[in-house]
């Protein structure tokens, strides 16, 4: 039995979802780059790309390539944006259990 055949010529690039966490399309990314949001961090702040559960693992490269393509800048010039811990999502309960010597414990915070 033949598999499902996708006619790639009919698949518009614009409809491609580049960020699955926040459901952002390539079309949106392109529009914002053209409006001056031409760094990964600015696109992140505006659309949420890179801020979902995957922390940019799925979208960062694609978006950086798109910025490079549209601005004519090299990867070096664009910058990757900031990577933040934790490397993998961690359950609150796991960290709570690990909290043995809490520097905040019993301390009065003056303000």
């Amino acid at each position: 039995m033949a598999g499902i055949c996708i006619d790639k010529t009919k698949l518009d690039d614009d409809d491609v979802v580049v960020c699955r966490c926040k459901e952002v399309t390539l079309k949106e990314i392109r529009e914002w780059i053209d409006r001056g949001y031409d760094t990964f961090d600015e696109l992140k702040r505006l659309t949420g790309v890179g801020m979902g559960a995957c922390q940019g693992r799925g979208c960062r490269d694609i978006i950086m390539k798109e910025i490079a393509r549209r601005t004519g800048k090299s990867f070096d010039e664009i910058g990757t944006g900031t990577f933040r811990p934790p490397v993998k999502p961690v359950k609150l309960g796991t960290l709570t259990a690990a909290n043995k010597e809490d520097p905040w414990e019993g301390k009065v915070v003056s303000h």
Binding site: A53, L92, T96
Partner: peptide, 11 residues
Amino acid sequence: RAKDIRIVRQW
């Protein structure tokens, strides 16, 4: 009840 919710980022 949030104990199984995961932290994704700190800054």
